[in-house]
Design a protein around this nucleic acid. Structure first.
Length: 437
RNA sequence: CGGGGUGUGGCGCAGUCUGGUAGCGCACAUCGUUCGGGACGAUGGGGUCGGAGGUUCGAAUCCUCUCACCCCGACCA
């Protein structure tokens, strides 16, 4: 993409409404624009990031055997009356009336909707286990939206729902998601910690939330320092026993949010207990028949008798992760994107636009990157060098290649790693090899 | 929902106390000089000062009401 043709409205100064770093950087990088409290438009750069996060989440869900569907944002009130949550949910649920005076709502989550789909189509135990997920916008009318996209009213969430014959089966589904989440966060460049969680209004008896560490996190977390040294699970089919072993390993270390932490009854040695701020980026629940029972979601078992299925739900805040990743990965100059979610892999800086040799060298380099399918943002504007560097640092692409007349004389380009700041002078061919390889 | 705060060109702000018809920096446009880490000069475009009502000869400024947004707390992906 040529920057001269791109829509990336960056700001030099911090918008005053943005107090936390990810919100400031997202606004300054031209990723988002606020529409109203807790509701945002995603501009091209932000949209690219959002789609990349979504894709990583999607791939890991698919690998875990979940099937992608897409349920609507607007749901009928009757479904929620059936589960009893229409009255319980309170003002956080945005209620709408259509022209026929029918009660509708903008879905804050989809347990009812997915259970309705399940009961309509699944009749036999042979169709289990089943896990359906979608990545869809949700709306929760929070009293106090804040922190930019990290605590919006409208947000993009991946929510998966598992259906099994019994608790044992549901636990395998739960563990499979647990492991998939660990892999997902690792791919996103995040160090995530699973915490045992309150099951909350959603109900159930097995629940973990996943948090990423960041100084601006909303809650305080306490954890055993060795949990950070655990290896991310590897890809591939895993037996129920192997899944359980991974979950057991990750949950064997102490980890709790401030609401669950009890300093007096914590048996972690003082030097091993670490306290930091964290952002919740995922939450998984087993809740049994909480929805399947009132909805009559049953399947025929091997003996021909109907069994009410045992369910779980598994959420990842996709739009929140965009902010969460920035919170966890930035410096004083701007964002530092992990490679998997960077809007472009490399920024190409033409140090002297208008200089025939420099333009030619940059255009050729750009064409070669494009031919090799390397996502590149090419700053071909006539801005001054300083501004170009500052802008590239701000938007945080993993690599920066700078081509200028002086380097061309000696046959080198500047190759910079955004994360480490390390700069090397190498040949254009070498730079190309590193980016393509 | 309780407490605090802010609304003035796209962004950041001054002006409000002490009413006199809107200003600065950045950004934007044109021209020129510059140009290897956010240049300089000249010129120019853009704001009914969040909204409504009131006081006054006159309101960004004073009064009343209202809306929006932000921050701290309780709650959530």
């Amino acid at each position: 993409m040529r920057l001269s043709r791109y829509f990336m409205p960056t700001l030099k100064e911090d918008p005053k409404e943005a107090q936390i770093v990810s919100h400031r950087l997202m606004l300054r990088a031209g990723m988002i624009q606020q529409s109203s409290a807790g509701i945002y438009s995603w501009l091209p750069l932000g949209h690219r990031v959002l789609k990349k996060i979504e894709q990583v989440v999607r791939e890991e869900q698919n690998k875990a055997g979940a099937h992608e569907i897409l349920m609507p944002t607007i749901q009928p009130a009757e479904l929620w009356q059936e589960s009893g949550r229409y009255d319980d949910y309170g003002k956080e649920m945005l209620r709408i009336t259509d022209r026929h005076d029918r009660g509708m709502l903008y879905g804050p989550t989809n347990e009812e909707q997915v259970t309705d789909i399940f009961r309509s189509h699944v009749r036999s135990y042979k169709d289990l286990p089943l896990n359906l997920y979608h990545i869809q916008w949700k709306f929760r009318d929070e009293v106090r939206p804040r922190f930019g996209v990290m605590r919006g009213r409208e947000f993009l969430m991946k929510d998966a729902y598992s259906f099994d014959m019994d608790y044992e089966g549901a636990k395998v589904a739960y563990n499979r998601m647990f492991v998939a989440y660990l892999k997902t966060y690792a791919r996103l460049g995040l160090q995530a910690i699973p915490l045992r969680a309150e099951t909350g209004p959603i109900g159930g008896d097995l629940s973990h939330e996943f948090i990423v560490l960041a100084d601006t996190g909303e809650s305080e977390v306490f954890y055993h320092k060795d949990i950070l040294n655990l290896a991310t699970p590897v890809d591939g089919e895993q037996t129920p026993e192997e899944l359980q072993a991974i979950v057991d390993e990750w949950t064997s270390y102490y980890a709790a949010a401030d609401d669950m932490h009890d300093a007096d009854n914590c048996d972690v040695a003082e030097g091993d207990l670490i306290s930091r701020r964290g952002i919740e980026v995922g939450h998984i629940f087993h809740f049994g028949d909480k929805y399947s029972a009132p909805f009559g979601a049953t399947v025929a078992g091997p003996d021909g008798k109907d069994v009410t299925v045992s369910m779980g739900s598994y959420g990842i805040g996709v739009s929140r992760l965009a902010g969460g990743i920035i919170e966890a990965s930035h410096d004083e100059n701007g964002i530092i994107w992990p490679e998997e979610v960077a809007p472009f892999k490399v920024g190409l800086i033409n140090l002297k636009t208008g200089d025939a040799d420099c333009d030619t060298a940059c255009d050729e380099f750009y064409a070669k990157l494009q031919a090799a399918d390397v996502e590149v943002l090419y700053d071909d504007t006539s801005d001054r060098a300083g501004g170009k560097f500052a802008k590239m640092d701000l938007i945080g692409l993993p690599w920066q290649v700078t081509i200028g007349p002086r380097g061309l004389k000696s046959g080198v380009v500047e190759f910079k790693n955004r994360a480490t700041g390390a700069k090397e002078e190498i040949s254009p061919e070498e730079a190309l090899n590193r980016l393509v390889g």
